Amino acid sequence: MERINSIFENIDPDASHQDEIKDKAFDLIDEFVAQHFEEDFCELLISKIEPKTDLRKVARTLDILVWSTPDNGKRLDKLTRNWLNSNDGNKIRAILFRKDWLPTHDWEELSKNIIYKDTTLKPLIDYYTRELDYWRRTGLRNLGLLEEAIKASMPNSFIN
């Protein structure tokens, strides 16, 4: 748990984009992957998070893990789907707060299920619905709108 907390201490979601992740976070995540990749490393990650942890830090850690794992995020993609289909609001938010993620082709059905579970996530669902269409048309992302959607759900953005 100490290593996970150290990772989070080196991520500041309120800082500017270029200052959000300190170099030390990348090193700590590399160590975490080296020690735990053969295990269910993402479940281990979320199970060790302390209450009141900012889920934006978890989301950024998941973003980094995509590029830090030997399989280039394949296991993480499967986990993402499992988390979005779960009834665990912390897991769902951790995925929806990610900056380096976009939903897959079955987003319409999945998004309805998420809103059914938690209506406070509607701003994030609406963002991803529009963002997916925008990205398909232009190949670009509008992360400023993601920040606004996350802020709209901020009262619920910490591990309970």
Rank of each mutant, 00 (worst) to 15 (best):
W107A: 12
E20P: 00
Q35V: 07
L28D: 05
E131V: 04
E39D: 13
I21R: 03
G139A: 08
I4R: 01
L140H: 10
V66I: 14
E131G: 08
Y116W: 07
T53F: 07
F37T: 00
G73D: 07
K99R: 15
I49D: 03
W135A: 10
V66K: 12
P103C: 11
N160S: 10
E108H: 13
E38P: 00
I11G: 01
V33H: 05
Q35N: 11
L145K: 14
G144V: 12
E148D: 14
N10W: 02
P51S: 15
K22E: 14
I159A: 08
N72I: 06
T119P: 03
I64S: 05
Y128N: 00
D88P: 06
L132N: 13
N113G: 13
L84A: 08
T138K: 05
L132T: 09
L145N: 06
A149H: 04
R98I: 05
R141Q: 11
I125W: 04
I125F: 05
D19P: 00
Q18E: 11
D100E: 14
T53S: 12
C42F: 15
P123F: 04
N90V: 05
A94T: 01
E131N: 11
P13R: 04
R93N: 09
R56C: 00
I7T: 01
Y134S: 07
N113C: 06
K48Y: 14
S111T: 08
D23Y: 11
